[in-house]
């Protein structure tokens, strides 16, 4: 899988400077960690700039680090169909909140809803409902402190409305 090359990484460094917390490469995959305050601007830049043209949001997910503060890291996989390159963008969710990217890519519609129900990370600026679980389910199953076998639930919870 092709990721963005050195020259484009330099463009990002020059353009965003201290708004980028970290740029790392592992097994040829480039990961950028951006500050939450700059996330919206950063994503908009990647989407519309001619050198990047990231027109496809492949996936949105999150990782739970219970020891870390802020606890959740939201992970975006971006791709450009015309340029054929990829980029992974990460952002720490301070106060368990990040701004939504739904206005840039529609893929975020259901994937952000899934992250919200599984981790409890809220995406601001959009309407959020649970996607897979019952609407009044009180837990977030993909958090590390949720036991694999789950908790026993009263039947009324499963109303499926």
């Amino acid at each position: 899988m092709k990721f963005i090359d050195e020259s484009l990484i330099d463009v990002l460094k020059k353009h965003f400077k201290d708004k980028i917390e970290e740029i790392g490469t592992f097994r040829g995959e480039v990961t950028v960690v951006v500050k939450k305050s700059a996330l919206k601007e950063f994503m908009g830049f990647l989407r519309h700039d001619d050198r990047f043209q990231m027109d496809m949001l492949v996936d949105v997910t999150a990782v739970d680090y219970p020891e870390h503060n802020p606890r959740f890291q939201v992970v975006y996989h971006l791709r450009s169909i015309p340029m054929k390159h990829n980029l992974r963008v990460k952002c720490w969710a301070e106060n368990d909140e990040v701004p939504t990217v739904l206005d840039l890519w529609k893929t975020a519609d259901w994937t952000e809803r899934e992250v919200y129900e599984m981790f409890g990370v809220r995406f601001t600026g959009r309407e959020l409902r649970k996607l897979l679980l019952p609407q009044n389910y009180p837990y977030h199953p993909l958090r590390k402190d949720f036991p694999l076998e789950g908790y026993e639930e009263p039947c009324e919870l499963w109303d499926w409305e």
Binding site: V58, D59, V63, H77, K106, T107
Partner: peptide, 14 residues
């Protein structure tokens, strides 16, 4: 530590 499947079906029917 974390394993995420990017399911094509889910994203296609959204």
């Amino acid at each position: 530590y974390r394993l995420r499947i990017r399911p094509p079906s889910l994203i296609n029917i959204a």
